[in-house]
Amino acid sequence: MTPTFPFSAIVGQEEMRLAILLAAIEPRLGGVLVFGDRGTGKSTAVRGLAALLPKLRVVAGCPYGCDPAAPCDDCLASSRVKDGKAVRTNLVQAPVVDLPLGATEDRVVGALDLERALSQGIKAFEPGLLARANRGFLYVDEVNLLEDHLVDLLIDVAASGENVVEREGLSVRHPARFVLVGSGNPEEGELRPQLLDRFGLSVEVTTPTDLAQRIEVVKRRDAYERDPLAFAARWKKEDERTRRKVTAARERLDRVEVDDAALEAAARLCMQLGTDGLRGELTLMRAARAVAALDGAARVTTAELRRIAAPALRHRLRRDPLDDSGSTARVDRALVEVFG
């Protein structure tokens, strides 16, 4: 199989790369939305993410890839788990599942297993994409073009972490905890606010204006297309290093200290911006902590808050009819007002 374009070989786009790394480090962040111009490497970056994720330990044979430490109902009811312990476990690649536009609902949520229904007359559930994405990432390219009924479904499942299937005579519920990653081009349609809110970080990408950078992008893409294997081999070490950084950051994450001063600074920033609810502050804190973990810092300071404020907050601003400056500019201004 052709290897994907290595994450490390992406030129520039620091904010996007940081946001994707943070999502890999801290799944509770709630995923990343990458919005911007076409042809800026959005989907390339997301597809490169899989190679950076630490492997997952799963109950062998579980269709939802559940954690041996917390087996799902399906596993508990089966012979895969005995006395609350998994009989066999596997170490697998964390899933990064593509949700294609125009996917049918039965393919997303799962459906009646036709094969078994027809051949054996058994009513069985055939898991869908949401099942496969459990404990991993669900990627929707062109997320703003996703049909409404699929958006509704995602909003619901992303919030509850559980997929409830009541259709075709089936009644199934299974864990579907995934990190949502979306990308799109805002010129072609807006995202429903409820879905927007599900994303922890929102990144704006623009095409590189620096000629040298543009040339490098084209050169690397050309090298990759000509010989994907050789290109991937050349970047393997770098990807490996990034993966170790992610793994190390995950381990450090819980030890990163968030003191009252940092909490207060985050709260002041959110108040200044008038973001809705507490989700903004929570995301800002978690993201700043993940940044600190990535950098190997012991505690969150205003430096981390500054670095991640725009992606954590820019999609949570209320529209201000008297202020037509972009949301990034508004966050930057608030940063200056609050932190000086």
Partner: peptide, 23 residues
């Protein structure tokens, strides 16, 4: 390299943002 540079520069000058196009 001069050809790659010329194609990248031309795309930029003409406001063609997508990096797919010079490629």
């Amino acid at each position: 390299d001069d050809v790659i540079a010329a194609l990248c520069e031309t795309a930029g000058t003409l406001g063609i943002d997508s990096m797919r196009m010079p490629f």
